[in-house]
């Protein structure tokens, strides 16, 4: 049973001709277009809402504090929220791309295999027990995410990584940690406000504080994952082959898992359990440009950012004045996509 993540559609391509998805120029154009999508999503998100702001005004009030209502709306509410959405989307997308590689399973996504719920459980624990130490949340969330990943490995390891066992173990771990989260939210409902939005993932009322919480993790995570991309390319050839080529398989797997856990945990710390981004985005990118991690990581980062920014804008405006959590929008997009992948 040859396990190929991509059903390649270029069976008839002559050997002498480089398949479209392998061409450097094509890949760079896709990445360029994704970048434009992020910029577009950013301006669109800043423009729409209860107060409509024309595009030219957005730039004006971004750079000049003229004390106007538009300036206040953009600077204090929409701008940080869009940035935060972008960072969260980027983190989750990269985390998903890395996890799918290290767990050699196309369905690995931080929210499906319990890494996000591990982060959530530990994060909420801090919020409940020591609410004065908010700054510790991402660190504890990382510990939770890492524990979840390690438990999954221990449960699923049988002389190597086995894709089906990974998913089954992940779903079990996810259920366990989610139960823990629900329990906490029930018993301490007075201390954790916005339980519903946490469980679904929401960017509502987030501002600069959250941006600065996640920013360092995003920057470090992005740089380290870009630097790991060649190692990831070797790792997905399979453990035996990778070792033969001179890759330290265990170290690489541990490092990239930790990196994914860090990225997912920092996202969970600021928006709660936002699902499906890490699943949808890397897969769409694979379909577009193939799974060379040197291109997949930056492309996933951009698409993740654009997707969450747009979904959040949608969540904020479509039932205005009622805001729905962005996680609900993601689930509506993600669940059918997940089923599509399963049936493929």
């Amino acid at each position: 049973m040859a396990r190929s993540m991509n059903k390649t559609g270029d069976q008839n391509v002559e050997g002498s001709q480089v398949a479209l998805r392998d061409r450097l120029a094509y890949r760079l154009i896709v990445i360029g277009l994704l970048f434009l999508a992020v910029v577009g999503a950013f301006f669109y998100g800043n423009a729409v809402g209860t107060i409509k702001i024309p595009f030219n005004r957005i730039l004006e009030v971004l750079f000049f504090d003229d004390g106007s209502m538009e300036r206040l709306t953009i600077w204090n509410i929409r701008f940080p929220r869009m940035i935060l959405g972008g960072l969260v989307g980027m983190n989750l997308a990269i985390a998903g791309a890395l996890l799918q590689g290290v767990m050699s399973n196309p369905l690995a996504d931080p929210s499906i295999i319990g890494i996000s719920s591990g982060a959530g459980l530990f994060g909420i624990f801090i919020l409940v027990i020591m609410p004065q130490h908010m700054a510790l949340v991402p660190i504890f969330a990382f510990v939770g995410a890492m524990s979840a990943a390690i438990i999954i490995y221990i449960l699923a390891w049988k002389g190597g990584i086995q894709p089906t066992r990974i998913i089954l173990a992940g779903v079990a771990v996810s259920a366990l940690f989610s139960a823990g989260i629900s329990g906490m939210l029930v018993f301490y409902s007075d201390r954790v406000h916005g339980a519903l939005t946490f469980m679904n993932g929401s960017l509502s009322a987030r501002s600069w504080g959250e941006v600065f919480t996640i920013l360092p993790y995003s920057v470090i995570g992005l740089l380290l994952s870009l630097m790991s991309s060649t190692h990831m390319n070797i790792l997905i050839l399979g453990d035996d082959v990778a070792r033969g080529l001179g890759l330290e398989v265990e170290k690489t797997r541990m490092f990239c898992t930790a990196l994914a856990a860090l990225l997912a945990a920092s996202a969970v710390s600021v928006v709660g359990l936002l699902g499906f981004v890490g699943l949808i985005v890397p897969h769409s990118i694979r379909l577009l440009i193939g799974n060379d991690y040197r291109f997949m990581i930056p492309a996933s980062a951009l698409l993740g950012a654009a997707l969450v920014m747009l979904s959040d804008t949608f969540a904020r405006t479509v039932f205005s004045p009622t805001e729905i959590p962005v996680g609900i929008v993601m689930a509506v997009l993600g669940a059918p996509f997940f089923l599509y992948l399963l049936r493929r």
């Binding site: 396990r3 993540m5 480089v18 398949a19 392998d22 390319n233 399979g238 193939g290 060379d292």
Partner: peptide, 9 residues
Amino acid sequence: FNYTMSDVN
């Protein structure tokens, strides 16, 4: 056995 999920050329 060389099964890989890479779609490498």
